[in-house]
Simulated scan of single mutants.
Amino acid sequence: LIDATHKADKTVVFVTNELGLGIVPENRMARFFRDIAGLLNQTVAQAADEVYLTISGITTELKAKEVHI
């Protein structure tokens, strides 16, 4: 998926939900889904040129504020 977006001669936008900021689901399948979605978000964010987070209508550009330790 990431290779295909890099090869595309277009701007590609991913819109996802941030599931890790809430409570931990009681259901095993829901926890698994949350973990897989989180890994996908991390992988796409690492490969992206720009990453934004919008909460309550306020958008913050995250990639420019990235800290490498």
Rank of each mutant, 00 (worst) to 15 (best):
L1Y: 13
L1R: 12
L1M: 14
L1E: 09
L1P: 15
I2K: 02
I2A: 02
I2W: 01
A4R: 08
A4M: 10
T5Q: 11
T5R: 07
H6D: 06
H6E: 08
H6Q: 14
H6S: 07
K7A: 15
K7G: 15
A8Y: 04
A8R: 15
D9C: 10
D9H: 11
D9I: 08
D9M: 09
D9T: 11
K10N: 15
K10P: 01
T11F: 07
T11H: 14
V12L: 08
V12A: 08
V12F: 10
V13I: 13
F14Q: 01
V15W: 00
V15T: 12
V15S: 03
T16N: 13
N17Y: 03
N17L: 07
E18V: 11
L19S: 15
L19M: 14
G20A: 12
G20N: 09
L21T: 13
L21S: 14
L21C: 02
G22M: 11
I23D: 09
V24K: 02
V24F: 04
V24L: 08
E26H: 10
E26M: 10
N27Q: 13
R28W: 12
M29K: 01
M29Y: 04
M29G: 00
M29I: 08
M29D: 03
R31N: 06
R31S: 12
R31H: 02
F32A: 11
F32N: 06
F32E: 07
F33I: 09
F33H: 13
F33E: 01
F33T: 09
F33Q: 05
F33P: 00
D35M: 13
D35K: 10
I36K: 08
I36H: 01
A37T: 04
A37Y: 08
A37L: 06
G38C: 04
G38W: 07
L39D: 14
L39N: 07
L40G: 05
L40H: 05
N41D: 05
N41R: 06
Q42M: 13
Q42N: 11
Q42G: 04
T43H: 14
T43F: 03
T43Q: 14
T43Y: 10
V44N: 00
V44Q: 01
A45F: 03
A45Y: 02
A45K: 02
A47D: 04
A47H: 15
A48E: 00
D49F: 04
D49W: 02
D49Y: 05
D49G: 10
D49L: 04
D49M: 07
E50Q: 06
E50A: 08
Y52R: 02
Y52W: 12
L53G: 00
L53K: 01
T54I: 10
T54L: 03
I55T: 14
I55C: 05
S56I: 06
S56L: 07
S56A: 13
S56D: 11
S56R: 07
G57H: 03
I58T: 12
I58Q: 10
T59F: 11
T59Q: 06
T59P: 10
T60F: 05
E61C: 02
E61F: 04
L62D: 01
K63M: 10
K63P: 09
K63Y: 03
K65D: 06
K65E: 11
V67Q: 15
V67M: 09
H68A: 09
H68F: 15
H68Q: 13
H68Y: 12
I69F: 13
